[in-house]
Design a protein around this nucleic acid. Structure first.
Length: 265
DNA sequence: CAAAATGTTCCTGA
DNA sequence: CTCAGGAACATTTT
């Protein structure tokens, strides 16, 4: 499920159950994906933050943090199921973390110690904050390798995954295999990233056909209705009508319009 | 049955 | 040291 809009929507919906609350119990599968969780028992959550696709619960005293990554299929619900991997209880109630593919990760660390998570440690600026500086982005893009894997690395900017990279590149009219972006291209891409993520957060993220990503009560997101290229291969481009293409790039399915997004343009 | 699925990390080789 | 590519991780769905 999880790219920035889905993780941010998740943060907002579970925050009332965690912020200002003491963790009364944490029950989790025996797995190395859930580490040091007992250190958080009895601790009170001060704030629930988000960095890229990571949720970070900061405890009172600022000594410990609980980092949660949703992986590919992780999400929170009011009801448990056969896919429940972690169960959290506070005074506000119980939340069930479902994760069918088990790529999600929970770990309690010393505050700010992200040494065991290189991607979080090297995370680029938050795209929906003033940290996402245009001049810095243009400069970095001028020497980037293939643009799609570069964006997926989380280093130039935090929080983009396969869906929103394809959508942002389409809006900016940049071919996903482009190498080294002009100032003009990078400027358009910077704006496209902000545009697509802002809109996706507004409508609660994307719920794909597998329904993995839902709100606590089963409510879906709605941004999938506004996808312009993702999972639309063969359908007409919303701008020019050309059938959209799907190629394999860096191990990921990649959707684009061969007419609007021209290599070397 | 084979392939693909929203992500991160580790390894290898340049 | 950095970058790119590929495999691994675990499971479900098409």
């Amino acid at each position: 499920m999880p790219e920035l809009p889905e993780v941010e929507t998740t943060r907002r919906m579970i925050a009332p159950y965690l912020e200002g609350q003491t963790l009364k119990s944490l029950v989790y599968d025996p797995s190395s994906r859930y580490q040091n969780l007992d250190l958080a028992l009895g601790k009170k959550v001060k704030r629930l933050e988000r960095r890229g696709k990571y949720l970070i619960a900061i405890f009172e005293g600022d000594k410990l943090e609980l980092i949660v990554h949703l992986g590919m299929t992780g999400g929170f619900r009011f009801e448990g199921s056969s896919h429940t991997r972690v169960t959290v209880t506070t005074e506000q109630g119980t939340l069930y973390f479902q994760d069918s593919r088990r790529f999600g990760k929970w770990i309690v660390v010393a505050a700010g110690d992200y040494s065991s998570m290189p991607t979080l440690h090297g995370m680029g600026p938050e795209p929906l904050s003033s940290d996402f500086d245009l001049a810095d982005f243009v400069d970095a893009a001028s020497s980037c390798g293939t643009v799609k894997p570069w964006l997926l690395s989380q280093k130039p900017v935090a929080g983009l995954g396969n869906i929103y990279v394809d959508e942002a590149l389409f809006l900016a009219k940049i071919h996903p295999q482009s190498v080294r972006l002009s100032k003009e291209q990078a400027t358009k891409l910077h704006a496209a990233i902000i545009q697509v993520l802002t809109r996706a957060v507004e409508v609660g993220g994307s719920t794909l056909s597998d329904k993995t990503y839902q709100q606590l009560d089963g409510q879906t997101g709605y941004f999938q209705l506004e996808h312009r290229v993702y999972a639309r291969e063969g359908q007409p481009c919303v701008v020019c009508g050309t059938p959209l293409e799907k190629i394999w790039l860096g191990g990921r399915g990649t959707h684009f319009c061969s007419s609007c997004q021209v290599l070397g343009a």
